[in-house]
Design a protein around this nucleic acid. Structure first.
Lengths: 109, 109
DNA sequence: TTTGAATTGTAAATTATTTACAATAATTGT
DNA sequence: ACAATTATTGTAAATAATTTACAATTCAAA
């Protein structure tokens, strides 16, 4: 029996492999989220989000999780939350999410 | 009845909204896929993949589809395919995939 | 109206990418 | 073996994009 090509399995399910490896520069994050690069740096300075930057002076890289965070924070700001309140809510939500996904991930490997 | 937050629904299903908007620079694509930037440009010159670059001279931007293409092509090269053969196979696979996903997408809207 | 929060502006230095021309391997047919 | 084609890689100069740092501005609440 022949082994199915990898792509067929991934096509209609959540592409974990991809999102785990995903890294995006600040310009593209801005393009994706509609948040100005200046604002992204400000949020990072405040410690609300984090980048994967290895050394100081090098360009920032963001992972899927932090991009999702930014999108949520932006939505909450539009709804009237303060930045700190939005950041706190998003932080809590991600902690719950990671708890749930953590259990799931352990089953797989 | 209160509306559920968006994130809850997206967490365990395929994040279409995100992947549709996703754009990534060549440096990050290289980091994600393990393919050298030089090689990515070469493949693009040959017409095997395409970038979203608006004007000549500006930096290349790649979408999810083309990044997936690169990953598949790389895998097929490792298996012994020639570049052209791999490109052709990948092209065919994506045509089928888009046919299937196209039908699905129409239902949603 | 003062205070702090949130954002925005910008210049100079640095990092990353682009294009173009060229060189080098690897493979295939004769 | 040899030439031709395929695939990849090297690099320099120009340009694009990002970084940091200092500063200004806007806005809401007290």
């Amino acid at each position: 029996m022949q082994k199915k090509p990898v792509a067929d399995n991934q096509a209609l399910s959540f592409d974990y492999d991809f999102l785990e490896k995903l890294v995006v520069g600040i310009g593209e994050v801005s393009q994706i989220t509609g948040i100005a690069t200046r604002q992204i740096r400000y949020w990072e300075d405040k410690g609300i989000i984090t980048s994967l930057t290895e050394e100081e002076g090098k360009n920032r890289r963001y992972d899927y999780k932090n991009i999702k965070k930014m999108i949520l924070i932006k939505e909450m700001l539009d709804e009237g939350y303060t930045l700190d309140a939005a950041a706190e809510k998003v932080k809590q939500r991600f902690e719950l999410l990671e708890q749930a996904l953590g259990k799931f991930a352990k089953k797989k490997k």
